[in-house]
Structure formats: C-alpha cells, structure tokens
Simulated assay, not measured.
Amino acid sequence: MFLVTPIARAIQDAGVFSWDLGLTLINFVTPSRKVDHVTPAGHPGEGGKWPEYIAPKEGDSRGSCPGLNALANHGILPRDGKNISFPELYSTVRATYNFAPSFCFFVPNFAARMLNKSYKKDKIDLADLDFHNGIEHDASLTRKDIHFIKDQGKPHLPFVRELLNSASGKDKEGNVLLTPADLSRYSSKRRAESRANNPEFSLDLFHKIVGSTNASIFLTIFGGRASDLESILIEERLPEGWESRIREPFGLTIASFQPTILKVAFGIDERKYAAEASSTAAAENEEPNAAV
C-alpha cells in the first residue's frame, strides 16, 4: 500500500494547478497546431492513420472509459489492457487526445491515490479504474450502474444510441453535433432513471462534477461530432482520419476545460424527468407480482 500525506497531496495539487494556469496562458499567445498535425509526429495516429483496431477478446481488461479502451483496442496501450503504468497513461493520453500535460498528470495521480498505488512504481489493469465511487460513478451516460452489472468494460448500447440521437446541433459543414444542452438533458434523464431504479444509487457533488466532466470530453476532444462519437462510444474505436479537436499547442488544460463543464453541469435538472422515471420504475416492479 502506498500512502501520501494530506499535506503532500495539497502541495502537489497546488503545483499542478499553477502549472496548468501557466500552460493556459501560454496557449493564449501561441499559435494553434495546424489541422491534420495535432497528433505529434512519430506517435501512433500521426496524420490520422491509427494502428489496426482489434476488438477485445475474452480475458482482456477494459473499464468504463471509452477513450482508454480505444487506446487498448488500437494497441497504443497494451491490447490486453493490463500491466499499464501511470506514466504510460500520461504519455499516451497526452499524445492521442491532446490533453494538457498538467491534466494528464493530475488524473492518473488521482487514480493512483484512489487505488493506494505509487504513480511512479505500480501498474494497473484498465478494469482497476472502475473502483466504485472512485472515478466510476452511478448514472453514467454509456454504462448501466455497477449495481446491475459489475463488468463496466462494455457500453450499454441503448444508452449510447439515445445519447447520440439527442444531438441537436450542426456545424458549418452540416455535421450533426451534440451540444452542452443535449448533454445536460440526457444527464438529467439518466440521473433520474438511476435514482428511481437503483436501490444503491449514490451520486454526491464530487461525482456529479466527474459526470459532467466526462460528458464535456465529448464536446471538447471530440468536438461534439456525433459520427465520431458513434465510433468511439459503440466500438471504442478511433475513426480513420480522426485527430483531437483541441488544437492548442499545450492541449486542453484543466482551467480552459471549466467553462464547458460548468455549462453542462448547470443545465442539469433531473426533476424534469423524476416523475416519469419513478412511474416507469414502479410499473417494472409491479410486473413480477402481476405474473404471480
């Protein structure tokens, strides 16, 4: 077991956030990466040419994060999803999705703390990240709650389809886009449904923020484009020719991410769906008794 004192955590986090703010400011004054040149030279996916996609086989480790699963499915992370170091997560996520280095350091460090692991020395399997109410949480937009299905490695396709079908925006080229309002509405619905159906439902403020953060990745890294998200959320495959929609030279920082997260979070109001979710749950609970 690896323990970090609260003081050491606070000092480290303060350093990361200061670093992140600096990167945010540098992004403002530095030219953006050119289209088709977002993925670094020499990294898998350069020029939109991703390594071969192979769906996971029995015994492979996958978790609830489509983005990490896709890295394993393309062999950018180990294809079996096992024995992955935290620095390896840092480097592959940074290069593939163009998250800022501060972001890529902070999240694996949080995961290491959550699992009582050493960031520098220990390794994990992707499924290890689904420690319930660590990063994984109830009312996911793509997974059933862990109360109903312990293996979070596969998406629940009806949820994904409903999410994608809710897309109401379009860009200048006519591509269908998910908007912040779309994600707020679907998050509201999922939370109401989960609260009504899951007897062990829990979603504290921290995990509400995590949920809004995860949803906001669809809008930033993937630009909200439904056709790209269909591939990443259903097959957990990076589309041929795809690159991150974040073109800032130092990537998506924690600070620059906040306006999108807050827009999604402040638009969530599960009360609008509570009555429908409760009546549906009640009807489903009555069916076995009626049959008897």
Rank of each mutant, 00 (worst) to 15 (best):
P6C: 12
I7K: 06
I7G: 05
A8V: 13
A8F: 05
A8C: 01
D13C: 05
G15T: 11
S18C: 12
L21R: 01
L21E: 03
L21A: 11
G22V: 04
G22C: 07
L23Q: 13
I26C: 09
N27C: 09
F28R: 14
F28M: 13
K34W: 04
D36W: 07
H37E: 15
G42P: 05
G48D: 08
P66G: 09
G67Y: 05
L68V: 08
L68P: 00
A70G: 05
L71E: 11
G75D: 04
G75Q: 06
R79H: 14
K82V: 06
T92M: 05
V93I: 14
R94K: 08
A95I: 00
F99W: 11
P101H: 08
F103D: 11
C104V: 07
F106S: 10
V107L: 11
F110Y: 14
A111W: 11
A111Y: 10
A111T: 00
R113F: 03
R113W: 10
M114N: 06
L115I: 10
N116L: 14
S118I: 13
S118V: 13
K121D: 14
K123S: 12
A127Y: 04
D128A: 14
L129I: 07
K150R: 09
K150G: 08
K154V: 10
P155A: 11
H156Q: 08
E162K: 02
L163G: 01
N165A: 13
S166P: 04
A167I: 04
A167H: 08
G169H: 03
G169Y: 01
V176Y: 00
L177V: 00
T179I: 10
A181T: 15
D182M: 08
L183T: 07
L183S: 05
S184Q: 06
S184H: 07
R185A: 13
Y186P: 00
Y186A: 00
K189F: 14
R190E: 03
S194A: 15
A196E: 10
A196K: 06
A196W: 08
A196L: 10
N198I: 11
E200L: 13
L205R: 05
H207G: 07
S212A: 15
S212L: 02
S216T: 12
I217R: 07
I217W: 10
L219H: 03
G224R: 00
A226V: 15
A226W: 00
L229G: 02
L229F: 03
E230C: 03
S231E: 15
I232M: 14
L233M: 09
L238A: 04
L238V: 08
E243G: 04
S244I: 02
R247Q: 11
R247Y: 05
P249S: 13
G251R: 01
L252W: 08
L252A: 03
S256A: 14
P259M: 12
L262F: 12
K263G: 04
V264P: 11
A265M: 13
F266Y: 09
D269F: 08
E270G: 04
E276D: 14
S278K: 15
A282V: 08
N285K: 15
E287I: 10
P288S: 13
N289D: 13
N289C: 06
V292Y: 03
